[in-house]
Simulated assay, not measured.
Amino acid sequence: MPAQVRRVTARAPGTDAAHLRLHLPGTADAVRDALAQCVSWLMDAGVRDGACGTIELVVAESLNNVVEHAYGGTGRGDIGLDLRLLPGGGVEVRIDDHGQPMPQGALPDRGPPDLAVPRGDLPEGGFGWCLIRTLSSRLVYVRKNGRNRLFVRLDADRLG
């Protein structure tokens, strides 16, 4: 069954306000479909392969966090995704949802997981926020009126 990712708006790549807005269910399948649409749109806009990969990674980690943590893997809830190309080659990403708020109402503050442990004790997760922080030039989380909003700015110099 299709994940029903809905393209709400798409302004033509190459314009001063190239913009993509998607609305999707909070499921892993919908995230995969949304990522495919994002990459296609970015490629149509002439964004380099390496930059597309970096943007896709940040968007994937962010959307998967919503599905797994804000919605607890229930598949209930919706996600709004906005991508806006910036003059000079950067991109702004906005993700919003009605899921559970971030713990303590703020973005996780920890660095990368400790890898100096025996192989059997290596963590399975904990890398996502470290990747997002490393790749982004601006990262803001806001919880308002029962809605989470994540703003990520990726400047051209950080886009592979």
Results as ranks from 00 to 15, higher is better:
67 V>H: 04
67 V>L: 05
67 V>D: 04
67 V>N: 01
68 E>N: 11
68 E>C: 13
68 E>T: 05
68 E>F: 11
68 E>S: 14
68 E>W: 02
69 H>Q: 08
69 H>L: 03
69 H>P: 00
70 A>P: 01
71 Y>K: 01
71 Y>E: 02
72 G>T: 01
72 G>E: 07
72 G>S: 11
72 G>P: 03
72 G>Q: 11
74 T>A: 11
74 T>Y: 13
74 T>G: 06
74 T>I: 05
74 T>N: 13
75 G>N: 03
75 G>Q: 08
75 G>C: 07
76 R>S: 02
76 R>V: 03
76 R>K: 14
76 R>Q: 14
76 R>C: 01
76 R>Y: 08
77 G>D: 01
77 G>P: 03
78 D>V: 01
78 D>F: 05
78 D>W: 11
78 D>Q: 11
79 I>G: 01
79 I>H: 02
79 I>V: 15
79 I>T: 03
80 G>V: 04
80 G>S: 14
80 G>E: 15
81 L>H: 04
82 D>A: 14
82 D>Y: 10
82 D>Q: 15
83 L>G: 11
83 L>Y: 15
84 R>P: 03
84 R>C: 04
84 R>S: 15
84 R>G: 02
85 L>N: 11
85 L>E: 13
85 L>W: 07
85 L>T: 12
85 L>G: 06
86 L>H: 04
86 L>N: 12
86 L>R: 13
87 P>R: 14
87 P>D: 15
87 P>C: 11
87 P>G: 15
88 G>M: 12
88 G>K: 10
89 G>F: 08
89 G>D: 09
89 G>C: 12
89 G>R: 10
89 G>T: 06
90 G>R: 04
90 G>A: 12
90 G>I: 10
90 G>S: 12
90 G>E: 08
90 G>K: 04
91 V>I: 13
91 V>Q: 02
91 V>W: 13
92 E>S: 12
92 E>H: 14
92 E>P: 01
93 V>Y: 11
93 V>C: 15
93 V>E: 09
94 R>M: 14
94 R>E: 14
94 R>T: 12
94 R>D: 07
95 I>S: 13
95 I>R: 09
95 I>G: 08
96 D>H: 05
96 D>V: 05
96 D>I: 00
96 D>Y: 01
97 D>C: 09
97 D>Y: 12
97 D>Q: 06
98 H>D: 14
98 H>C: 09
98 H>F: 10
98 H>A: 14
99 G>R: 03
99 G>S: 07
100 Q>K: 13
100 Q>S: 15
100 Q>A: 15
100 Q>M: 12
101 P>R: 02
101 P>A: 02
101 P>E: 11
101 P>C: 04
101 P>G: 03
101 P>D: 08
102 M>E: 14
102 M>D: 03
102 M>F: 08
103 P>G: 07
104 Q>K: 08
104 Q>P: 01
